[in-house]
Design a protein around this nucleic acid. Sequence first.
DNA 1: TTTGTAATTGCAAAACCTTGCAATAAGCCG
DNA 2: CGGCTTATTGCAAGGTTTTGCAATTACAAA
Lengths: 140, 140
Amino acid sequence: MNHSGDIVKKLTERGYRLTPQRLMTIAAIEHSDGHISAEEIYAQVVSKYPHVNISTVYRTLELLKQLGLVTDTDFGEGRVRYHPVGKGHHHHLVCQECGATVDLDETALTPLKDVLLREYGFSADLRHLAIFGRCGKCGS
Amino acid sequence: MNHSGDIVKKLTERGYRLTPQRLMTIAAIEHSDGHISAEEIYAQVVSKYPHVNISTVYRTLELLKQLGLVTDTDFGEGRVRYHPVGKGHHHHLVCQECGATVDLDETALTPLKDVLLREYGFSADLRHLAIFGRCGKCGS
DNA sequence: TTTGTAATTGCAAAACCTTGCAATAAGCCG
DNA sequence: CGGCTTATTGCAAGGTTTTGCAATTACAAA
């Protein structure tokens, strides 16, 4: 498991510049509970660096996503939430009826990943998914 | 397998009103190749009924989605594409490197669906998914 | 430490989708 | 057919995210 600072290290390794905007965006993600929205990140960044633009936050998030350092997940809230890959791998079951969410271990998706690789030669990026449906309490 | 007209039938059965806006939106979906965007639907509707508003198209799509008559799938294009459920069930593997997409049979997701139901009592709505990753040609 | 260069940012605008509200019209009933 | 009720629509505004472009700045190299 990675720890705080890993994202910064990987950015420098790959030759990306360490701007204050990027550092603060990364800090917000790493210090979050692991499911933070762009707006929430932006609020934290602005509180210490008022003239930062939210589009810079979005561009940093896009970069981190491309580099495989964060995942973005749509929980059906009308906005996406970000998760540092280093903070552990899991998925979510989201009930569309009552809104309840249950964590799902990474291994639940492993068989599917293996089948896609074996039968289609396709390396699926199945990280931090939100799977929608109906939970037991809400019936079939 | 359903055929054209099924969506309209189900709407009336459930007591929804058959407005011209809805009928034209439904026709556009049913006559499409099965992966049509809201903007494309809207263009078709407007060509015959110029004063229709795109928010009405979106509301109809949301309704059809709730009723399980269409699926909406994000292929990573910045907009969602709609598919009439009656036109057959399948998924897509989308290569994030070269953009190639491969169809995947519905059955590939059945084991996962079964596990979620058995072990979590969760009835997952795994219809017409886009699974992102890297295809064989683009390497692991 | 200064300079040069190209990556990065801020800003403004736009794309996609949703929502509140008053006006409209579908379908029921007489 | 005509009126009634309430679902549905159009409009305008707003939320989330992306993008083009000129200005800025991180970092490498002198």
